[in-house]
Design a protein around this nucleic acid. Sequence first.
DNA 1: TTGAAAGCGCTAACAA
DNA 2: TTGTTAGCGCTTTCAA
Lengths: 329, 329
Amino acid sequence: MANIHQVAKYAGVSVATVSRVLNDQGTVTAKTRIKVEDAIKELNYEPSMLGRNLRNSESRILLILIPTISNPFYSEIIKGIETAALKHNYNILLCETDSNPERENIYFDLVRKKMADGIISMDPAVNMETLMKLAEHHSIIQCSEYALDSGIPYVTIDNEDAAYRAVKHLIRIGHEKIALINSDEKFLYARQRKLGYQKALRENGIEVQDNYMFHTQELGFDQGRQAMRKILDLDDRPTAVFTVSDLLAIGALKEIHQHGLLVPNDIAIVGFDKIDFSNMTHPTLTTIAQPMYQMGTIAANMLIDKIKGNEVDSIVLDHELIIRESTSG
Amino acid sequence: MANIHQVAKYAGVSVATVSRVLNDQGTVTAKTRIKVEDAIKELNYEPSMLGRNLRNSESRILLILIPTISNPFYSEIIKGIETAALKHNYNILLCETDSNPERENIYFDLVRKKMADGIISMDPAVNMETLMKLAEHHSIIQCSEYALDSGIPYVTIDNEDAAYRAVKHLIRIGHEKIALINSDEKFLYARQRKLGYQKALRENGIEVQDNYMFHTQELGFDQGRQAMRKILDLDDRPTAVFTVSDLLAIGALKEIHQHGLLVPNDIAIVGFDKIDFSNMTHPTLTTIAQPMYQMGTIAANMLIDKIKGNEVDSIVLDHELIIRESTSG
DNA sequence: TTGAAAGCGCTAACAA
DNA sequence: TTGTTAGCGCTTTCAA
């Protein structure tokens, strides 16, 4: 594998000139440019990013911090990030923390050690203190989940309003006994969605009952089933359930079917995220659409902006209630 | 941000000594080690991988080439890759080609330009010529999909046998009119699975009918629905369908429900991959389990071995038929 | 328009 | 055991 010196020698010019044609920059005669390009072709030369990156003190890599790649919610955001990153000549390092602090730390080290130019954090379980300390010297953007007072820019949706509208929809179609399957309230989005749930109930004169609110450690199918099992065991059984993720909703759906009950006739369900699978279930899922792809592109563009040294502002994107079969006979 | 020189100066030693304690290598007195470690702490020094990588001519990054992150089949493999990579101090660059050659080329450039030390290719649509040319000078492993005569090591399963067993299961429970929803036969796995399908039929004296075999461009839900719609339109309607991916199967399932028919009573379905969602549908899906996580760890270990300069052998992993509700009343 | 040379931060061969 | 020094491959300033 040739290096820049050999190309320079072969072309009969200096390395500086080779570098200039490589970067389409500076002033190079058409004649010398051709000499250099010929040499490059002849020697099969590929400029090494290792050298360039060291010289430029950049890696052109964006670190994406997610809890798990298994949740399609994140896959869709990642698609957006990747497309935007590519457009600016960045690439993405995928980092699944599995909510494991040790693993998280390995990934943080990558930016400390200059292997990544910035971070898009989507992990609700991220250690905020560490993240904030890191943000003092590095470019970081929060995506979807965030801490308001961290001073770290974020892109997200209005979780409270989204939950509010989901529950209001259930009330509008006649439900009064509405359960909530939430995730752990240590997460901001969980607290926000709970607020929206409660607000919708109160506004309609429905009492908020503690025994109608459930919490899960993760946002998966199994957790949805387990929570739904508890709900089905309730003496005064709810006629509708609002879950904070489609995966939870799909688990709940399964459990309801298992008990020989029907959705939405016996129990209506609303999910959250509008992942692809929410349209594949039977019945299809009413859910809150988050603009995931857009969230990804925006987060990436914000990060790249920040890396450039620009000020960037946080942004709250629109969501949308998608009414489907699980709430309408 | 301090560099190694400043640490050396602060500690009153040479940069070589700092490098030695950094890499836990060479011979350093406990006393000097402590001096250096103190300096590191004092200056908040973090060694730059940019410098180290240039010096060592390595990036410690593994490039993962997948068609799309949306298919959970790949997510699970990626989990395996990431875990194995991390164990060896490698990180993974996620590259979705979307079966777009232009995008593929951008990613190939990353290894040409030393930004990645090797590739795990899982894209069935990969340009084999380019891949083989690249393999002359770079470490590459094929995962799941492969070209036998490429000379590039692979890890996969026995697709023909897997399909054979899936169809045989359908025959055993009494089906004779069995349709196939396959993907494009330009892919090796599609040809192999078709062979298995045909073999099972022939062995049991069932005629292979061309009008029972369908092809789709992608392995998704929508393609499954469309194919199933055609099957339902058939004059002599099959009583069972073997699909080459769970996503296709889920689409087929949906379409069958839509027509007011029941699975498995009216039509039985077998999927392929055992993605998490195959257990969330109603009914749950009979499917072929691929050891995805294991495939990921093995592929990563093979690649790391290859980067080290070792010979690595291709490997065929076991699969398993998982019988669930979609084939058993 | 081009070239010489310094230097990005690190490792390792060699010398002391 | 430690230090000196030569690069790894590139970009960029300065001078010609």
